[in-house]
Amino acid sequence: MKDASPRTLLHNLPVESYVVAFTVVLWLILAVTAPNFLTGDNISNMMRQVSISGIIAIGVLCTIIIAGIDLSVGSVAAFCGVLVAQLLSHGLDVPLAIVLTLAAGILIGALNALSVGKLGIPAFIVTLAGLQVYRGLALLISGGMTVGGLPPGIKEFARGSLFHIPNLFLTLLAVAIIVHYFLSFTRTGRYLYALGSNSEATRRLGIPVFRITLIAYVLCSGLATLAGILLVSRLSVASPSMGNAYELQAIAAVVVGGASLFGGRGTVLGTVAGAILFTTMSNGAVLLDVDPFWEMVLEGLLIALVVYLDNLQKKRLSGV
């Protein structure tokens, strides 16, 4: 019993402990070694930098929880970013353009859910196709060119802040709180975990499996669309090349944040912490002047290490 108590403690560690611990340690190291790290300017920079990738990662988390995946998020962000820019440059009002673009994003999510849930095509394949299709559509509707000439109001959002907290980061916080509440405190949200843990049992319990799938993919594409609109606000132009490889960054943040690619496991807090960890690493690499090629190697090793530690804990959980 005596030496069982530290074990029990390990058993009860929440899934996001490792990523939070790593992030805190990295922050402490950088606070000591990089003189400009803990400055108001740098922290507000990092808040802006993490926001868009964090929002996309929260969306991808929803699909990973149901044992799915969404590889199309980077392309969807680019397509919807170009779409909103095209609508705006053709003189549509900002709110109308945003609503139409979000509707397009939701439609994309619904199509993904239909292909996965009704046609039975694996999510990996459906969204891999989407990765190509929406990048292609982004190129088509922009003619391969950068779309500029946007109304000044669109830039102001990404540049603005409220009580010194950037609007972009406030958006991430709002998304995180809403999705966290949904996943943890609503019945439908809990069904996402159930579906990811055991789809057959979930089906037999009479839980509307397709509706859950639909919610997960619509949330994911919807958030990628929101991220695309924010990206346009941040860059003040839309380019068909933006959002490149964001799907991989998002999956890395989700997995480092303690989610399982086999479904049923993962939290918003862990995912946001994962996104913060990667943003901190790339910020720290510049501040400490780490060779950019080493930075890539270190980021890759970090993913492997955190997931390894996390798996060790999972093994303990399944009873050693």
Partner: peptide
């Protein structure tokens, strides 16, 4: 300094902001 981006605008933007933080 020299940083390498992923040929993506937002990353170029972040790296520029970070380089300005490092060397104000």
């Amino acid at each position: 300094g020299n940083r390498v981006a992923n040929n993506e605008e937002a990353e170029g933007m972040s790296l520029t902001a970070d380089m300005l933080t490092k060397d104000s």
